[in-house]
């Protein structure tokens, strides 16, 4: 096992400790899952780890939807098509939809037509958690903005507050619209909000997020933004990258190479 991988496992393993507390209501199965306790040396320190992702849009293949399909399958995301009741965690948007405030005049046709993966940014200053009246959506110790489906009252303030359209509400019972039930993540009920969780259920087990794992083009890099030695930070240092709507001060943890 290389150092990078071992580091990742150690940090992700810490998620299990937090998982027992924060996510106990949400993921009772996973919280009780046996984790290899030898990988931790210390307790989770809030703010020590900040998971982040880098999307290299140059490597993301046109027409490929592998990560979307895999994520939506693994998380039992219902498929209502492109209707108003749509639920989605990760999807492709056109460049100017993803970056509406970035300059668009005389854009190179290549970039203009490029599809960009969009998902929750797990903002370091998330407006969604600020607006939530019940702490049903909250920022975890490792920077992941998480959901407690058992606490959410379905008021949709978080949806109005998110500047990225990352959240979906269950306008109708999602279960009949789940094509192939996956045992890796609980299904949700009608009336609550959901969104990408950076695969916290996989991180606990020391696995990379499903989208990252499924990408054949290697377009997605996942890691700890607080660790200057991480692969992610090295790539951020070596490349010109963008965050979505940086002017809003939300400090997204998802970065893009255009």
């Amino acid at each position: 096992m290389n150092q990078q991988r071992r580091d990742f496992l150690r940090k992700a393993g810490l998620g299990a400790l937090a998982g027992i507390g924060a996510a106990a209501g949400m993921l009772p199965l996973f919280a009780l899952e046996k984790t290899d306790m030898t990988v931790f040396t210390d307790k989770p320190v809030p703010g020590k780890v900040r998971w982040g992702m880098l999307v290299d849009t140059r490597k993301c293949r046109e027409g490929c939807n592998e990560c979307v399909v895999r994520c939506h399958h693994d998380h039992n995301v219902p498929d209502f098509g492109k209707s108003k009741n749509e639920v989605k965690w990760i999807w492709k948007s056109r460049y100017e939809e993803a970056f509406p405030t970035a300059s668009k005049q005389f854009q190179s046709p290549d970039v203009e037509n490029r599809n960009v993966l969009t998902l929750c940014n797990h903002c370091a200053e998330p407006p969604c958690t600020r607006a939530c009246p019940t702490e049903a959506t909250f920022r975890r110790w490792d920077g992941i903005v998480s959901m407690d489906y058992h606490r959410c009252i379905g008021c949709r303030f978080c949806m109005a507050a998110c500047p990225y359209g990352s959240r979906s509400f269950n306008w109708q019972d999602p279960r009949p619209a789940v094509k192939e039930l996956s045992a890796t993540y609980p299904t949700r009920e009608r009336g609550v909000v959901e969104k990408c969780n950076f695969c916290s259920e996989r991180l606990v087990k020391g696995q990379l997020p499903a989208c990252v794992e499924s990408c054949a083009g290697n377009a997605l890099t996942f890691g700890d933004l607080n660790d200057p030695g991480s692969e992610l930070r090295k790539m951020l240092a070596a490349n010109e990258t963008m965050q979505r709507k940086p002017e809003l001060g939300t400090l997204p943890s998802v970065f893009y190479i255009i």
């Binding site: 600020r130 939530c132 009246p133 019940t134 702490e135 959410c152 009252i153 379905g154 609550v192």
Partner: peptide, 20 residues
Amino acid sequence: MGRPDRVLNVLRYPSPHSMV
């Protein structure tokens, strides 16, 4: 509200950072 049965959560988990 999507889950009006849980309306009391607003009082059970008071969140002064939320305008609601």
